[in-house]
Amino acid sequence: MAVIAGGGWWAMRQRASEQPTVAAVTPVTSQSQDLAPASTPEATLPPNIGPPTGCIHRPAFVSQLNLGDQIYIGTNLKGYTGLTLSAQQPDGRVAVYQHPTWDDAGNLAAYVLDQAGNIYVAPAPFVSLDENLPEEQNNIYKIDTHTGVMSLFIKLPWAQPPNTTNPYGVMGLTYDCDAHSLYASSVAGSTYDEELGRIFQIDPATATVVSQLDGVDAFGLAAYRGAAGKRLYFGSARNSGIRSVALDETGALSAEQRLEFYLLQAPGGQDERAKRIQFPKRDEMLVKGIEFNYTLRAASDFKEHDYTYRYDPANDAWEFVRMRLREGVQ
């Protein structure tokens, strides 16, 4: 069973002078974590090494909401379908805001922001398909930074359409500030026998696919500038492997994949899939691993593991640091 829905949280700060007006108040019971990239540079690393995510900007419409100082984006808030913004209020309660369009695509999961503060978000079924039709799971939606309105951004081309034996489409999203490219992974149409997923490089300005890698079922993904150039790291949806491909200066995907490591190789590592890959520090990769078998999940407790790896520039490789269990109820 997969914990697909709910891409976690992304924190945004706003000016302290803005007063919150609470749209709806709901205590948040799910776990949350500030996933904003750390800004502390590691002194020993050359300055060009690190994730190309520094341009990410908060959505402009957020300033109109007066939600509070620190705002979280979530796609797994209990009681809500779709994307939400949450902010803790001075009295300890949590204000939740949801634009009327943010549940139009059913349950959502992966999301990412760009340098203008637009939010790109992808659907993923949760428990059942009644709000997530298979043929809509390869769509990406865009929440406009100025209006907050969510609308269809792009329908990604699939090798085969999603179906009842694999109801999933887009699994991961990331943004590269160097090339101003959006990357998406999709497993649409893949079967037990055939790996038909794709990784796409998308031009956000034109909503067109610039380059793509075929025959890859990938889950979470993220770009990183290493000692030997920039690579797109991605977790396989079919095993616990983390792989990568080189990106050229335009952000185009190369065809040659490199196996980095398996989560299973870590001490205590599990046969999990990398739902999300992040770089909380310039030299640190955080992989969120979950169980995934191309089935839906029942509503219940979830169990995830966070795997941390440190970058070794001399070998352009990653070394395991630690693993943590994260549990909760959804």
């Binding site: 079924p125 034996t165 078998n293 089935t295 839906l296 999940r297």
Partner: peptide, 8 residues
């Protein structure tokens, strides 16, 4: 089915 299915 326990894999490749839309069962919860």
């Amino acid at each position: 089915c326990p894999m490749f299915s839309s069962a919860a």
